[in-house]
Amino acid sequence: MTDQRLILASRSAARRAMLTGAGVPFTALDAGVDEDAIKTSLAGIDPAELALELARAKALAVSRHDPEAWVLGSDQTLDSQGGMISKARDLTEARHRLRGMSGHTHHLNSGAALAINGAVVWSGVDTARMTMRRFSDDFLDAYLEVEGEGLLGSVGCYRLEGMGSQLFDRVEGDYFTVLGMPLWPVLNELRRVGVIRT
């Protein structure tokens, strides 16, 4: 589309699918940042701001190794009932987490950052308000069996584009934000810097 190169600093299949679906040419590379260390160093930070900081760290890590490419970093945080939630380590923890979120509303924050020449030139965050329905143990068992360990890659233990859609009564916010990246602002910025055509 243009002669500008874009690198997505993420392992996320959902983020890759979003850019591919939007017709944006890119390559993907794992940023290799220590997310736990960043979270520890920023303990107490607003969850939306943490999503931004993680996105910036990913973009910068890759940009320092390939300064001539545009690098897009993105990350999500989830805050529920006054606490920050991290990815579940196993299906037992996922079951406990989902049971605790049943019948409650949580906020899913998706941050993105664009870097070039080892510097972040843009970043933004969007938040979706997610209300889970009260579901039965039978449903939860079936859900975990169908989704399996694939749901451990999602901070909320769900994929809205899959059976996870049945977990919710209401979602307020942008669909792409829920999937893992505030796509509309990202596309606007990619147009502004000449990565994709205006």
Rank of each mutant, 00 (worst) to 15 (best):
T40V: 12
M84K: 09
Y175C: 05
A88D: 07
H104M: 05
G73I: 03
V193H: 04
L6C: 10
L151V: 10
R64K: 14
V120Y: 01
T77V: 10
A22S: 15
R133F: 00
K39M: 09
T92G: 14
D3V: 04
R95W: 02
K39L: 05
V33P: 03
L6H: 10
G21P: 01
A88N: 08
A43W: 02
L183F: 02
R16W: 00
R16Y: 00
R5G: 05
E145K: 14
A51D: 11
R99N: 07
S154K: 14
L160A: 09
A59G: 05
N117K: 14
K87D: 13
R97S: 11
G180N: 12
V193G: 04
A22M: 08
W122M: 09
L60P: 00
F176G: 08
F176D: 15
R197A: 14
L52Q: 10
E53C: 05
S86C: 06
A13F: 00
I38Y: 02
F135C: 12
R192G: 07
E149I: 03
G73S: 06
A57P: 01
L187A: 09
D75H: 04
G164F: 02
R15I: 03
L60H: 01
A94M: 08
R191M: 14
Q76Y: 01
E35C: 06
R197Q: 14
P185I: 09
W70R: 05
L114P: 03
V178A: 09
R99C: 03
D34P: 00
G153Y: 01
D34W: 02
Y143L: 13
A128Q: 06
V178S: 06
E172V: 13
A9E: 08
T177D: 04
T131A: 13
L187P: 02
R129M: 09
E189R: 15
I45W: 02
T2S: 15
R192Q: 13
D75S: 04
A59I: 07
A48E: 09
A69T: 09
D3Q: 13
R170C: 07
S63W: 01
A142R: 14
N109W: 11
I45C: 12
L152P: 06
W122T: 11
G23S: 11
L183I: 04
D79G: 02
G73D: 04
H65A: 14
H96N: 13
S63C: 03
T2A: 08
A94K: 07
C157D: 14
C157W: 02
T177V: 15
A128N: 06
G21H: 04
L19C: 07
T92Y: 00
L167K: 12
P182S: 12
S86M: 05
